[in-house]
Design a protein around this nucleic acid. Structure first.
Lengths: 158, 158
DNA sequence: ATCTTTGCAAATCCTTTGCATCTCT
DNA sequence: AGAGATGCAAAGGATTTGCAAAGAT
């Protein structure tokens, strides 16, 4: 994507230091998991991956850390896939990418489209809004060779 | 919008009858509130409005009815504003309208934009998806005369 | 010493469910 | 009577919070 782990975790350390906060082992693990084990994971999934490394980490810590990372604008949350908050690493293209979700297998593709962005601006302006952000999800069926093998680790009827 | 209350509630009655279900006073009130007292209300807001007419209506009934209307495809839900499910009357333009939300006052504007829709189709196709649906929210500040007087009946820090 | 962070458990918020009661046919 | 609906209270799932213990500076 846009940023490498080194740069991103240094950013994290800096932002924490600025607020007299610490980059603890737990936080480091959570950040690492989020960055390396794949994005769009929810708290529970992150928690399980973290516990695989250190089973003593509590779920409140995962909640708190993910919320913290969000406040530091190092990750973004969205809850449009299955009702749980899912996180992704924030990068510079952040405000400008959207998601394509396969309803069968849960696979998520990110994309950017400048033409759509421009039209969004126009629409907002036409309605007297100053556009600050947006969220767009396209839902469908992906026609990948490995779909429809639903591999979502934590799906349930919704 | 697209449909008038007569047509819509007749549709409701028909769909219910088809499943041996009844258009009870509670359901009628809930449907009426949703249609006439403004859309994008969440369960709690609908419940309060209904209780203003009949204080004996329970919240489970509101939940059940809204879910029922959803299953009958007479309303659509989305939970992108504040985490609670918000409902709107389903009409024929349904799959083709999106929302502009003011972050200050919570005001929601609906809009349609065919050019964006076409681009969405293109994007999906380019990634090997068959597009079934989409959800798009634009967030900003509306510059209306009555903003920023936050009038959301049920807001809270999130 | 002081301030931050953690893990645990309890609390909260939104939503769903079980069940006895009530309503309509 | 029999099926569907309702209200209430209890149950659920996701997230947050209070607090005492642990860790860092």
């Amino acid at each position: 994507m846009g940023i490498d782990f080194e740069a991103w975790s240094e950013l994290l350390e800096q932002k924490l230091a600025r607020n007299h906060q610490r980059l603890t082992p737990q936080r480091k693990m959570i950040a690492d998991v989020l960055f390396h084990e794949g994005e769009h994971k929810n708290v529970d999934e992150v928690h399980q991956l973290v516990r695989a490394r250190d089973s003593s980490v509590g779920h409140a810590t995962v909640y708190r850390t993910l919320k913290l990372l969000q406040e530091l604008e190092l990750v973004h949350a969205n809850s449009m896939v299955d009702g749980t908050a899912r996180y992704e690493v924030a990068a510079d293209h952040d405000e400008h990418h959207d998601h394509l979700v396969c309803r069968t297998c849960g696979h998520i593709v990110e994309f950017e489209n400048e033409a759509i962005e421009r039209l969004q601006e126009q629409v907002a302006k036409a309605h007297g809004f100053r556009l600050a952000d947006h969220r767009m999800m396209l839902y469908g069926e992906c026609l990948q060779t490995d779909c429809p093998h639903d591999t979502r680790p934590n799906r349930k009827a919704r």
